[in-house]
Amino acid sequence: MKLSLIIGGCLSGMALLAALISLVWTPYDVTALDIAHKLQGPTAAHWLGTDHFGRDIASMLMTGARTSLAVALVAVTIGMGLGVPLGLWAAARRGSWLDEGIMRANDLIFAFPSLVIAILITATFGPSATNAIIAIGIFNIPVFARVTRAGALSLWQLDYIRAAQVAGKGRTRISGEHILPNIANLLIVQSTIQFSLGILAEAGLSYVGLGAQPPTPSWGRMLAEAQTMVTLAPHVAIMPGLAIVLTVLGLNLLGDGLRDALDPRLRGRLA
């Protein structure tokens, strides 16, 4: 197995595991304030130290992982769920008004700066994790639609698509049976990139106070709260920062590794 797949799997797996464990157990209650022990460095009692309210950073990171992963996952699902079919549809009807319509609508969404619109949506409908998901998800749709269409268009020129047409298969069926499996590589890599961008976007929204609301911990908000204390207790900022960096890195490595492992043409060479 490839090294990138192992490292990527471990890093992403750690984030996922932390999120899952936090559902049933965390070392400390993340809502319990303990001002007496505020801004402590890593100790035996608090492995990653405490923040300015004396809350356990390890516990907050675990619970925060839940928010980050859930937001990014649902946002990617929205993007793929709508973007991929739209892209396949546009490619199958290349040059038609449908293709034009889908692609121009994509351009329209692309034309807006994504974070500004996300801020607009969450500001209009109220700051919450759900609204953050919707805002990030909408911007994933054109990304997936474009990647899907570009990948599919080159495949539509190939002979095995013609062979399938000669076998009487319709456009929808060809798209599902021949096109989609062959662009799965592209989509997997793109979804891990979007997943990591989703984590960053959620952190960004929470950082400006429009994501998850207190007392729900989130990596972005932990960073925001730590910024005034960077010189005083750098670990309070470093820990959530590291969590974001390692998870994003892990997801990107995982995407690369999965792409190679899922391709039957490359599979033989991995052993």
């Binding site: 190939l158 002979d159 095995y160 013609r162 062979a163 049976e177 021949h178 499996p181 062959n182 039957p264 043409r265």
Partner: peptide, 11 residues
């Protein structure tokens, strides 16, 4: 078809 490499779905 002509191209023995492009005539089949590789998956």
């Amino acid at each position: 078809f002509q191209d023995p490499y492009g005539s089949f779905n590789p998956r």
